[in-house]
Design a protein around this nucleic acid. Structure first.
Lengths: 210, 210
DNA sequence: TTCTATATGTTATAATTTTCACAAGAGGAG
DNA sequence: CTCCTCTTGTGAAAATTATAACATATAGAA
């Protein structure tokens, strides 16, 4: 692994490239050029090549990239060759939707369980994923080697949930709660903030004179 | 409105600042410093001041910012003083979760309706929001002055849905489908890609040696 | 073999964004 | 009034990221 610091935007784009390549692969396409990839993701060919160049040389000059090989490389870069175990905390609307979301499984993420403190929900399943009580969370994370916690609880209990996950030895957190959470440096966090996204949208819309 | 080009990252941070200020306001706090804001969002005080400086001078030297005033200013910057009407397309798990999500209403977004093509769902409601057939979408958008469309359909029908919304005169799209969509320049788009977020997380986790 | 067309990898340049450092304004104490 | 402390606003420097341009490698045709 070449260890310069890679822009986050590059990683995001790689993930999108990968999805496109996956689709090409299903359609039996063998070779693709940086220009084609760029077109499919509304980017520039130079940027596609630059993004890939951070990690090595994957193409053949004059020819392009082998779809399957390139996708394998990107999948490896993104850390998707190993299987990731995840749990969702919070079995409300959002937690339920995430529990049933097919996209995670497709990319190699195993959602093993959902945790909630509502007694009425314990024992039920969400799209086949069992709901357990929060009290079992810490033990479960350790026993089942869960690396990723997905926070789908209200903002005011998010930090407590995070602390619980961190103490259990979780390595990464995907936070859907609309708040900033604090974690130690060795725990990676990624925030998905629905309201923020809508507000960024309206800011741009207001600019464009709607 | 001062019209230099503002970084997207700045707008995102403003949105987060706003939420923090809203909370302070509820707690009766009158004044706040850039340092305090920075601490609450894991940023630097210089960045907070710089972000605000794009839009004007909102503070008092030696004192700080008036919580209520500053929040009002940010809300205005983000275009939240006007009321935004939105519809959700897709009444599956994600669409249902979004329909019931309280956070939108709190920030001034009205989710008026959900649209789906499943006959069995038409006429039902999601947290009080009615479900209508897709065939009514175009007329509804025009009649009710809907500016924002939220895409919660599968990837393979996302572009068709987008085209329909664009033709109906929608101004902004929040896309949850895991794909890149194409729109004319006058329509703003914001993608919320769950898989991409997870993959960015695992990339960073792999770096940190999990 | 040589020539042409094509598309990569890379270096140089430009643009953007963040960080730093400090001058300047505000308010309170003496 | 003057001094001292506090915190903003800002201009310059540093760091980061994107764009553009081109030299290099490949495949195929003649």
């Amino acid at each position: 692994m070449k260890s310069a610091k890679i822009p986050e935007a590059t990683i995001i784009r790689l993930s999108v490239y990968s999805r496109y390549l996956h689709q090409l692969e299903k359609n039996g396409v063998i070779t693709v050029s940086s220009g084609q990839i760029a077109q499919s993701v509304n980017g520039s060919s130079a940027q596609v090549r630059k993004d890939l160049a951070y990690f090595g040389e994957f193409g053949t000059r004059g020819v392009g990239y082998n779809v399957k090989d390139l996708n394998q490389q990107i999948v490896k870069i993104l850390g998707l060759t190993k299987n990731w175990n995840a749990v969702i905390v919070g079995a409300g609307n959002l937690g339920s939707a995430l529990g049933q979301y097919k996209g995670f499984q497709e990319r190699g993420f195993n959602v093993l369980a959902v945790f909630d403190n509502d007694i009425n929900k314990i024992g039920l399943t969400i799209g086949g994923v069992p709901i357990y009580p929060i009290s079992r969370l810490a033990d479960y994370v350790q026993e089942e080697d869960v690396q990723i916690g997905i926070i789908a609880v209200p903002a005011d209990s998010a930090q407590d949930t995070v602390d619980l996950l961190v103490d259990s030895g979780i390595k990464g957190i995907l936070n859907f709660a609309p708040c900033v959470i604090k974690t130690p440096d060795h725990v990676e966090v990624r925030n998905v903030d629905l309201a923020v996204n809508l507000e960024l949208l309206t800011y741009n819309m207001a600019l464009n004179g709607s």
